[in-house]
């Protein structure tokens, strides 16, 4: 039984799998730590898309997203203990987020040291002409998402991609529940305004 992913146009075929789908993420992760590679494949199947999209939407470009994606999984694979605090999905997204923050810091330092003459920052809002080109609501949403303040975008993406509760997200990024709720509310308000014609 080949095991490609639904909706994946690639020709990747994984090894035949035992019926591990009924197991929780944490059980699968423990099994992987006991040497079960198929348990990892099941776990990977569950989070490959959401993690990738989270990184893609919050990174400067696809190349950075791919690097971060691979590094996140690599850290999960190498992690010495099977269960940290909280659910597995919180762990994997926390690792991804931390890597992203580290990458952002490195990039910022690089820019400051290399560019003495700082230029005007690019305007976040596209020109009205550009906006008229984006006729697809989905594309518009992606664009608007990219233009949200970083913290609001992060709150939105974590909510959508992880399915964690506000409390869990707040704990994951070390802020209060009300803070994350507020960020999310602002993000949704802004998106709703931008997508008024689509909704």
């Amino acid at each position: 039984m080949g095991n490609g992913w639904p909706g994946n146009g690639s020709s990747v075929t994984l090894y035949p799998m035992k019926d591990l789908s009924a197991l929780t993420d944490e059980q699968l992760f423990k099994r992987f730590h006991r040497g079960d590679a198929q348990a990892f494949e099941t776990l990977y199947t569950r989070y490959r898309k959401s993690l990738y999209i989270y990184l893609l939407r919050s990174s400067p470009g696809p190349a950075e997203a791919e690097d971060l994606y691979q590094e996140t999984w690599s850290r999960i694979i190498r992690s010495p203990t099977p269960a940290g605090d909280g659910p597995f999905k919180a762990l994997i997204f926390r690792i991804a987020r931390n890597l992203q923050i580290d990458g952002y810091r490195r990039r910022t330092l690089h820019l400051v040291s290399d560019n003495e003459n700082t230029t005007e920052p690019e305007s976040l809002d596209p020109d009205p002409e550009d906006r008229s080109i984006i006729d697809d609501c989905g594309e518009l949403l992606k664009t608007e998402l990219g233009q949200l303040p970083e913290e609001q975008r992060e709150a939105f993406l974590l909510k959508e991609e992880t399915g964690l509760t506000l409390e869990q997200i707040a704990e994951m990024i070390n802020v209060g529940r009300e803070t994350i709720k507020s960020r999310l509310r602002y993000a949704l308000k802004r998106l709703r305004r931008a997508l008024e014609d689509c909704l």
């Binding site: 992913w5 909706g7 994946n8 690639s10 020709s11 990747v12 994984l14 590679a37 990892f40 494949e41 990977y44 490959r48 898309k49 990738y52 999209i53 893609l56 791919e66 994606y69 691979q70 999984w73 690599s74 694979i77 609501c137 989905g138 594309e139 949403l141 992606k142 998402l145 959508e160 949704l188 998106l191 709703r192 997508l195 689509c198 909704l199």
Partner: peptide, 24 residues
């Protein structure tokens, strides 16, 4: 917004990336 957002989720990691991670 959630519905619209989910409709945009078509991107996936490349097969090469999958293979590398699973091999590791």
């Amino acid at each position: 917004i959630t519905k619209l957002y989910r409709a945009t989720r078509s991107e996936e990691p490349s097969a090469e990336l999958d293979t590398r991670i699973l091999e590791q």
